[in-house]
Design a protein around this nucleic acid. Structure first.
Lengths: 220, 220
DNA sequence: TCAATAATGGCAAATAGTGCCATAAAGGCG
DNA sequence: CGCCTTTATGGCACTATTTGCCATTATTGA
């Protein structure tokens, strides 16, 4: 086991594994094409081969990146939800959520309008596509531990606390439902301004937290 | 168009469609066998043909009852979550949730210990099986509209209200997380009594609702 | 250039699911 | 009881999904 001792400084000698970031980008590229095809023809009418062709990959390699064709949309969804969560993470204590949403512009830098559109389209499609619905819920569940950390920091408690985890799940549900409402409104032709979106989000978070996290209506 | 007028009293002449209840029982029977096989051999090692054979159906008919082998576990999960939701529906205003959980025994009549075990086993497996996890989340999402009605009744508001829907999602998350904790504890060999389960559930609901629904700690 | 390692692609095979049609089962009616 | 109608099931072929295996290619260090 002298090898074990040297393990930490063992230099790899061949081709290095794909970097995490490069793999992430590749998955995102596939994801965008998959969403485009799903929107154009529908999920059932899009085959794994179609997606692979659109990206310029072999089918075999596609299945190395994703376990199913539906899960191809996951990176685009995660991109948007991660931006949401990051925005919440930057929400300073003592300010209202609405003020923060107006003041914090980094979310618009983090996710392009095209990806935002794509996400809302997938959420709208998920009303009819059980596989997409399941994926959407899974994506939001994965946000819960991150939100638990945010809540824990804010309340000065442990992220393992049952109350903290429940509060995080609550926050996730508020974000999710607001997004679903927005997607439904857009899909059904009811337009909505970004400002109203922010207000609805604040309302949802307030309904979910009852002010425990320190947000107050801006008029108060 | 005269046919349209008579449509309501048109008597069917051939074999009647399977009753909703019979179809539900058939799905439940399949579900129990599927869970049994999944527990014994794992999901990947269980094929659709295995499930069909266990129930005594042809594979073709199995796929008429379920769209995928993983979704076969859905009826057992729904059985348990429905019982949970029904218990909440019977929760009288003005009493603490813990008192209600102790007093209301109908949940134990509604779901057998075997089905409860099966549900917890599936939840435990869902930590490693993405398809089961997705299904579990979908089952709980379907409970949200029902819970929204419960919340709406309790608060005298519309079940369409954003705040009501968010509160319902919050309640669903509390139930879900409590169940997941219980499943994890059981799977990891940490026993837990029913009483403690009720206490944890009350704690979760209280953390989620902040007393808005009228529950109070029994000591208060 | 050579050796080593990782990514990709091609092919075959197993599994998952669907469409189509034949047959069996369950009713009503004479 | 046979006759007719409708539904549930089963069998078969077929497509799609997904994985294992191996050859090929690409990328790195020596």
């Amino acid at each position: 086991m002298s090898e074990t001792a040297l393990e930490s400084q063992a230099r790899p000698r061949g081709r290095r594994p794909m970097s995490e970031r490069r793999r992430w980008l590749q998955r995102l590229e596939i994801s965008r094409e998959a969403v485009r095809l799903f929107r154009e023809r529908g999920v059932a009418e899009t085959t794994g081969e179609d997606i692979a062709d659109a990206v310029g990959l072999s089918v075999r390699t596609l299945w190395r990146y994703f376990r199913s064709k539906e899960s191809c949309v996951e990176p685009v969804l995660s991109l948007t939800t991660d931006a949401f969560v990051d925005t919440l993470r930057r929400w300073p204590s003592g300010s209202s959520l609405e003020e923060h949403l107006v003041a914090d512009h980094r979310m618009r830098d983090q996710v392009s309008p095209a990806d935002g559109d794509a996400t809302l389209a997938v959420v709208a499609m998920s009303r009819r596509e059980p596989a997409l619905r399941a994926l959407w819920l899974v994506v939001y569940e994965r946000a819960e531990p991150v939100l638990a950390q945010v809540v824990a920091d804010r309340l000065g408690r442990s992220p393992e606390d049952l109350a903290v985890r429940v509060q995080a799940a609550t926050l996730a549900a508020a974000l999710r439902i607001t997004t679903e409402d927005l997607a439904a409104d857009l899909a059904d032709g009811r337009a909505r301004s970004d400002d109203e979106g922010g207000a609805r989000l604040s309302e949802a978070v307030r309904a979910a937290t009852h002010g425990v996290l320190g947000d107050e209506p801006p008029s108060a």
